[in-house]
């Protein structure tokens, strides 16, 4: 059981991820707004953040940087439909555990999450 934060500008995508991960027994908080997500992480413990890269105001990379400031031990998985080698390397160097590309299947998401939480 882990506390997971999901940030995706498309709220439906967040709901789908929540559905999948709740079934695995995780506690999932979903957001479509960057600031609300950051505020949540300041006051609540987060074990894992799943962040979309393309957001409304900030990039997922900036959010990752911000979240790591208040939760340095937090794990992070980036999720994007528009991957570039540059942003992937940036995310990994900022401490993201993995960088995943959409479309992602239910199995793959479950595997990645359990891998990251286990390791």
């Amino acid at each position: 059981m882990a506390r997971i934060l999901v940030l995706d500008d498309v709220i439906d995508a967040g709901i789908l991820i929540r559905k999948i991960l709740q079934r695995k027994g995780h506690e999932v908080a979903i957001f479509s707004d960057e600031e609300e997500a950051i505020a949540h992480a300041r006051t609540n413990p987060v074990d894992l953040a799943i962040l979309d890269i393309k957001l409304k105001k900030m990039t997922g990379i900036e959010v990752l940087d911000e979240l790591k400031k208040s939760n340095p031990d937090m794990k992070a998985v980036m999720l994007t439909g528009y991957p570039t080698v540059e942003t992937a390397r940036q995310a990994l160097s900022l401490g993201a555990s993995d960088y995943c590309v959409k479309p992602i299947s239910k199995d793959e998401l479950e595997e990645k999450v359990s891998e990251v939480l286990g390791g």
């Binding site: 991957p83 080698v85 959409k102 479309p103």
Partner: peptide
């Protein structure tokens, strides 16, 4: 319909490793 996207994704994972 989704096949090309799936190819692009796997290819990206590969590119990330070999670039």
């Amino acid at each position: 319909l989704t096949l090309r996207e799936i190819y692009r994704k796997i290819n990206f994972y590969l590119e990330l490793r070999i670039a």
